[in-house]
Amino acid sequence: MSDVLVLGIETATAQVGAALVDESGLVGSFHVTRDRRHAETLVPAIRQLLETCSVELADIEAIGVDVGPGLFTGLRVGLATSKSMAFALQIPMVAVTSFEALASETRWCDAPVVAVIDARRGEVFHQSFREGEALGEPGVATPETIRDGLDADAVLIGDGAIRYAAVFETHKVASTIVYPAAGAVGRYCFARAVAGQVVSHDRVAPMYLRRPDAVANWATVSGQVSTKHR
């Protein structure tokens, strides 16, 4: 298994990224956080990354993708891209959640870590971890609700923790861990791939944690529906 090389893809938040990981760690990575042009940026970035790292597409043994939660359209760009690549390359995939990618950067921390991702509309997606292992289920809640349930020594990470820093002011916010990184997705994928814990692309599904608007709120349906172009 010494020559395993994986591609990590990350588009679930404001950041778009791609990374190549092998047993030596990060081979190369690309991240852009400005302008949210995920669909425009991702595929050329992957091509550039492969070229710069002298990696052939055929060398990739698995693709890891952040399946969310996060921005719906952004994460669908990553899923459509990574699943199509895995299909065309006939290689397996590893699904990583945004929480897992964020929390994987805090294995060194022995305090409880809460990954908090901005969910808009005054809410955040959240999940708790200790030393990179999940403590509870993923959920969506107001920042105030999260704060009220926090352990005294809990550390918060993610763009939701930074956006609502004022709400979380009684706790430590690790302000350098903002978005899930493609490198973290890649490292997670590499570990799973080496352990043989991979799935087919058709088993990879997004984690939305929220129902579509029209389902959630009938009152807004008339403003949501679009006339079908038939």
């Binding site: 669909a39 991702l42 595929v43 992957i46 091509r47 597409l57 359209t73 669908r76 760009v77 459509a80 891209t81 990574s82 699943k83 199509s84 690549m85 299909f87 065309a88």
Partner: peptide, 12 residues
Amino acid sequence: LVGVSAAKALAL
């Protein structure tokens, strides 16, 4: 964006 992303990935 779903179709465009898939098409570009396949073309790549």
